[in-house]
Design a binder for these strands. Structure first.
Lengths: 217, 217, 217, 217
DNA sequence: GATGAATGAGGATTCATTCAT
DNA sequence: CATGAATGAATCCTCATTCAT
């Protein structure tokens, strides 16, 4: 597992959390809103600091560091549930894969809704910056893959998933899940997701949109 | 159908096409490469104009206009095949939906590969700019929907697609297709897509990843 | 004698000496080291105050005043020995001019070595600031001249110095002595001066570098 | 001979000379005057650019580079005459060392008067910046030493200089010469040097200030 | 008395755009 | 038409100084 400490390295450069002053909170909130709306590059530090611009730099050193200060906690929260903790959620009961998938969508939807703006910033910056992409994407993929592959294998044994390579199933899942969240929260800037929509995408992932008796494989 | 003339409005502001001089081509090429690599905001006109910066403004008026000058032809090419012309492709023979879907993926893959960089620019700017998003997205969705809904209804009549609302099927298709291309070409910056990958995603869309006899609907 | 009270005026603006707290000592020490190394302009008060920046301003009012607070005691120590006290050192015994000169060099070398950093700050700021230069240089020159001229006249009477205008001899001495200390301690940042070097420059000042029997005067 | 190409390295980073536009000349002139008067650190680029600040950066890239652009030509002119070309000046006739020394002072005085402000900038920056000092001083010393040592040896053979180590004589000369020019042009900001003053320092260097028949060595 | 967060004026630098040649 | 020097507003960042705790 390469680059395991990318996030730790990033985390070390940012301000220790918890010690936030009122001003710091104001800055972070303004930064999140503006970065999400207009993007990091198109937001000036003058806009973020409603009062004194210098305060930003006293607190965060650089504009870049301010960005990391709001991204790192998000990523640290965002990753685990994509992997190890996900397995735990499964172990304690014998839910079906459909239930598992639906609860995954609901859980992540809730998380992204809570962090909608930071998620937007994350995706937007990820797309723009080669460095972030090269450092984080492999790490995220690696991190998420290991947990998911296990889950897929478990459900294959239970006979709930097609007998294809787990990697094939993972690829399909990644494409649909990432497509679902990115299109809803980043492209369409949705502020809510209905249960029906989650049920719908869960159904489609499991059953496909083809009629069962017409499958031409 | 709202905003039908968004593109025409955009097109009118840009230089008439076809009259491209050598200089213009140089500028366009450099702009495409740089915008795709670093993003519009992070590319300066000085970088684009290897020689005379003034030429850009003589030719395109503003940097914004240079961006539109390379996006508009792409969008004009990109949209039709998502809609009307797609239907024509269907009419003349009685291919299965699977074949239709596969050829759609292949066709769009070829198109995006040919215009990989402009596609990246398009998506990146779409994500970043509220204005572009608000003007283009509804138009694209509208435009693509009408054609697709017809196709879906045709295949439903032929019994190849599940008996759900065409809009439901369209939503699934949009999510997966947009997810597929954005993840491959923008997030992962792929330079090629294998036939196996297309076969794979086509299969998954049609059949899902659940085992047929375990479907819990 | 113009500007006789330049130093007193400067001294009045600064904190009364002797009452130095631990904190003040820390600040002064840090300031001396940093000012000497990087110069006054290139040292920020944040660097000087390892802990609380406010303390500097509580103690010294302004950064400028902190500079004066460390320069004034140095200048007050530095000047007298160049003048009056120098004469006293002569009166009680009948040393030769060579011995006098050598002991002057040794005395000043010891003093500058003890205050190497403050001497560097003094010269660097003197060179940079027209105001300091215009206020201090005439005062220093005046102050030092009067004492030295007396000494020179004494030694001329004893027949140990050439029969030129005392002002001429003073000018030569000033040039060489200032050149010696500035080149060693400021330009070359020497941390020690050997006795041989002092003997050498003393010899050259007295005898010149020309061969006695070839003098073309 | 180490660092022989320090200057070349510096020279490569700066704008090629000769292509100066009117604006560039204005900027250089303003920069020289202001840097000499207030020092590099205390001069803002806004002050230098009477019209558009951006022009400085279009032309010189950075403020630092502007400094080098005016220092490098000076240093390139300043160094040679301290060394090799000096020897040539000697070869063609059999002047006495006194005449040589006087003409050296006159030559350098004329040069420094012509470049008074740049010389001030040079010395002021040399004193302040460790990096410049560490790179240039050894180079200058090396460069000047080799030429001077030869000259000293020639005159020692002619019996015009004391029979001490050439290095000893060089050290004395360096101290007095650098002291002379730095005190006159940098500390005292003189705008002219009289022939009498040059004759005086030349005399003192050669004969010393001690009375010949009282030498106690 | 000490602290350090907050301040805001000022500084170096960037960059889209203009215009004289 | 093409050029590239000149522009100046805007940007990120620094820093001496203030002030509430």
């Amino acid at each position: 597992m390469v680059n395991k400490n990318v996030l730790n390295a990033m985390a070390e450069t940012i301000k220790p959390l918890g010690k936030k002053t009122v001003k710091q909170e104001q800055i972070l909130d303004a930064a999140i809103t503006l970065f999400a709306e207009k993007g990091y590059s198109n937001t000036s530090t003058a806009e973020i600091a409603e009062v004194a611009e210098g305060t930003i730099f006293k607190q965060y050193g650089t504009k870049e560091n301010l960005l990391l200060s709001l991204l790192v906690p998000f990523i640290k929260d965002f990753l685990p549930v994509m992997a190890d903790e996900l397995v735990k959620e499964l172990m304690n009961d014998d839910i079906s894969f459909e239930e598992f998938l639906r609860s995954l969508f609901k859980n992540r939807t809730a998380f992204f809704l809570e962090n909608r703006e930071v998620f937007q910033i994350f995706i937007k910056e990820l797309i723009y910056r080669e460095d972030l992409k090269n450092e984080l994407l492999p790490y995220i993929i690696e991190n998420a893959s290991s947990g998911f592959i296990k889950v897929i294998e478990i459900f294959q044994k239970r006979g709930e998933l097609v007998d294809k390579e787990p990697e094939f199933i993972l690829k399909t899942l990644s494409t649909v899940i990432s497509g679902f969240f990115i299109s809803r929260f980043v492209l369409l800037n949705r502020h809510s997701i209905s249960d029906e929509e989650i049920d719908g995408i869960t159904f489609s992932i499991l059953n496909g949109i083809g009629k069962v008796d017409s499958i031409t494989t």
